[in-house]
Design a protein around this nucleic acid. Structure first.
Lengths: 259, 259
DNA sequence: TCCCTGCACCGTACACCATACGGAGAATGT
DNA sequence: ACATTCTCCGTATGGTGTACGGTGCAGGGA
């Protein structure tokens, strides 16, 4: 997708687009003035994805919002995959990065919280195949900022990389659960009780307590405690606390060795 | 998507399909014999997704593989979203669940390893919006099995739920990185050096060492150590060790309180 | 001044996609 | 024998991303 091959010797067009602000806009064009801009395209795309979900985001809808015809969007952006890369980098830069401060725990919490907030603001980030994040300026700045928060602890470079990767990866799970629960809550007209009642005949056959003794008990307890099937925010805090405990222990051991 | 509303009083068709084997097939139909089966449809879909990726999976291709015309697939399955639910549950059941044994650490590693292997066998699991996993028999069995592995440690039911959720969620990050690296490695004809050389002019402007001192250093170290941009398997082991350390500490504290 | 050239915009078209609807015909129960 | 019911599928609708080629504008060079 985003790794389409470009011509021999041609530098990556996506790279150039990602860094367009720092590289300076290409100057002195010949033809008619552009009616829009790369930023306008990216902004429109982000707005659509925020408001109505990534699945309804289409080149045609972007064009419509910009007062263009569909094919004109392709004068700004090579394709949809590249556009999504640009969207990711754009939203990665919309909040300032506060100078890391406080204990290691507080610093790691800050990294996680930054990602968490971003996922809640832009739930579509969780639906895109963001495995290989585009190396845009804002994503790069964020990475540098995250590493700076754990600089000077006695960790090797490799370990620093892995710690930040661990924190960043951890957040995805609970964030997904959170936005999904919210989406379900907003979209469905049916209450939990109605669903249960409607499916009672099958569920009785299915949820055999002899086969599911533990999950039955745990599910019931969780349902009562959360007032719903899950509490992703609590899972976020619980999991983060465990992960940070593990990291702290590792840092303590590593600095003991280094000393 | 998978939460389409069914008619008043109608029990969920997806639920019935998921549990079709244990519920018993509907018996005594009137019309012509079916030429395929729900299982055949699901198997065909899984094969296509495994071989050529989830993005090329279409109802038409499934029909083709089964010797049917596209619309006939809909006599077995209500739609594509429901089919994907069935696929998820099918692959969740393709390996036996060994009886939990060994230390807590070994048990948690076993849970994580089971998920890791599954993601490597079926990378498309990482690309689907699997936030709300379908409550099919194999997914349910897996959940019960996971909980059983940490039963009797003195954790509350809520904590058990959260521990298993944490482990399951953690695996996704490194698994994604792994399959993505592999995909890239297989698809691109260009070596890392060629890419670097081709983009050197922009990269020099972009990767300002004054702006990215730490990530520059860490990236270089990681690249040399891994012989590539990342080592997801190592990240898996590193992260898992930290997460389990955190969980062990929590369990120790919880059992101290309970005592 | 005039023209050449390069570019923005876009009309059209292609190859897909999921799936709604209704009809033909097969197998069964009565 | 007939009515019923269910499978299979032909057709169609309304979407998608994007390739290709054309039109006309605007700035640079002669």
């Amino acid at each position: 997708m985003s790794t389409e091959s470009t011509g021999r010797g041609e530098p990556d067009r996506t790279l150039r687009l990602l860094w367009r602000h720092r590289l300076g806009e290409p100057v002195g064009s010949r033809g008619p003035k552009q009616r829009a801009s790369v930023d306008a395209v990216v902004d429109a795309a982000v707005e659509i994805a925020d408001d109505e979900g990534i699945e309804t985001l289409s080149m045609r809808r972007i064009a419509e919002r910009l007062g263009l015809k569909p094919m004109s969007v392709y004068t700004y952006v090579p394709g949809k995959a590249e556009l999504i890369d640009l969207m990711v980098d754009r939203v990665a830069g919309e909040r300032p990065l506060p100078e890391p401060a406080g204990s290691l725990r507080e610093r790691l919490e800050q990294i996680a919280r930054m990602a968490w907030d971003e996922y809640l603001r832009h739930p579509w980030l969780l639906s895109i195949d963001t495995s290989r994040p585009p190396l845009g300026p804002n994503v790069s700045d964020r990475w540098e900022w995250s590493l700076r928060a754990i600089e000077g602890l006695g960790l090797s470079d490799i370990d620093m990389d892995q710690v930040v990767t661990l924190i960043a990866g951890f957040v995805v799970g609970p964030a997904r659960a959170y936005v999904d629960a919210e989406r379900l809550h907003r979209s469905t007209t049916e209450s939990d009780e109605e669903w249960w009642e409607r499916n009672a005949p099958i569920l009785e056959q299915i949820m055999d307590p002899a086969r599911y003794p533990i999950s039955g008990r745990v599910g019931q307890a969780a349902g009562e405690e959360y007032g719903g099937p899950a509490d992703p925010e609590r899972a976020f805090h619980f999991g983060l606390a465990r992960v940070i405990d593990g990291i702290e222990a590792y840092v303590a051991a590593a600095s003991r060795i280094a000393r």
